[in-house]
């Protein structure tokens, strides 16, 4: 009797600790978003005198002005938005589909070079990104492939990180018996992958979609070097352009641009967050 009582007390104590920690972390997570959205409705001078504040003297008026500045620059935000959407969506689709295919090849079949290939993939992951980028952009200039959105999209077919992740996922959750039963039904190998295996990987795909889309959407360095024509700009380039005015920086419109940039990410994230909540089964033991 007494024992259960202390146990109960203990678990209440633990619960209190858990909630305090979680609430603090939650505030830390949300704060930057609030600051960003609030600053989009503040004037540049207000932001410069105190950047971290949830107060704006004339929110609507400032928002309109910031919007005018953002829209009054010589580039078109809607073009940037469309370009960003094209690049990120295509990148995500290509990366996810071909990573699943490659990881399936690594998982389901036994072939001579399999281990060597897997080793290669892990090896590629380890190459410092900065320098591959230097070589990549010099090559792009040599073959005159700058200002082509495809140059940012097609390389996503080879995404070693994701292949590695997908392989781990398949090992944890896919049983080859399902594949075998597909074969007995007379389905071809490619069909089995498309119809049976790919749908089964949905939870892993959803989380990877979030990671890839976010990474591609926020990518600045490579697009900034490769895309030099206005009609090819992505949204982050336009925000960086606002930021580059060395003599005067329009912070209000920068925050507006950043807010606009983050909203599509929030939409995608909220839509796919079910899989983050439910989790992706990815363990060491198959059931």
């Amino acid at each position: 009797m007494a024992k259960t009582a202390t146990l109960h007390k203990e678990s209440i104590g633990l619960k209190v600790v858990i909630y305090i920690v979680c609430v603090i972390l939650a505030i830390l997570s949300l704060l930057p978003f609030f600051i960003m959205f609030t600053n989009a409705t503040r004037s540049t001078a207000e932001i410069q005198s105190s950047a971290i504040s949830l107060y704006s003297a004339h929110p609507i008026q400032n928002l309109m002005r910031n919007w005018k500045v953002f829209n009054g620059k010589s580039f078109d935000p809607s073009t940037g938005f469309v370009n960003s959407l094209i690049v990120s969506t295509c990148t995500t689709i290509l990366a996810v589909y071909f990573s699943c295919l490659t990881s399936y090849a690594l998982f389901a079949y036994e072939w001579k070079l399999r281990d060597a290939f897997f080793g290669l993939i892990v090896g590629i992951m380890m190459i410092p990104g900065t320098v591959t980028m230097i070589g990549f952009y010099q090559a792009a200039y040599q073959v005159h492939m700058t200002n082509k959105l495809a140059m940012l999209i097609i390389p996503a077919i080879a995404s070693p990180n994701m292949v590695f992740f997908m392989r781990q996922y398949l090992q944890a959750s896919l049983s080859l018996e399902i594949v075998d039963s597909g074969r007995i039904d007379g389905a071809g190998e490619f069909m089995i992958f498309n119809r049976i295996v790919f749908p089964l990987m949905k939870p892993a795909i959803a989380t990877q979609c979030i990671f890839t889309f976010v990474g591609s959407w926020n990518n600045l360095f490579l697009p900034q070097i490769l895309l030099t024509k206005k009609e090819k700009y992505t949204l982050p380039i336009e925000v960086a352009l606002l930021n580059s005015d060395i003599y005067q920086t329009e912070y209000g419109s920068i925050y507006l641009g950043l807010s606009l940039t983050v909203i599509p990410l929030l939409i995608i994230y909220i839509l796919l967050s079910r899989y983050i909540v439910e989790g992706v089964a990815l363990g060491g033991v198959k059931s």
């Binding site: 295919l101 090849a105 072939w111 591959t132 090559a139 390389p155």
Partner: peptide
């Protein structure tokens, strides 16, 4: 099929990563 399904990855890798590396 292991080879077959790895071809897109390998091609993209050869063209876009191997040269820079």
């Amino acid at each position: 099929y292991g080879y077959l399904f790895s071809i897109p990855f390998i091609l993209a890798f050869l063209v876009f990563s191997l040269y820079p590396i």
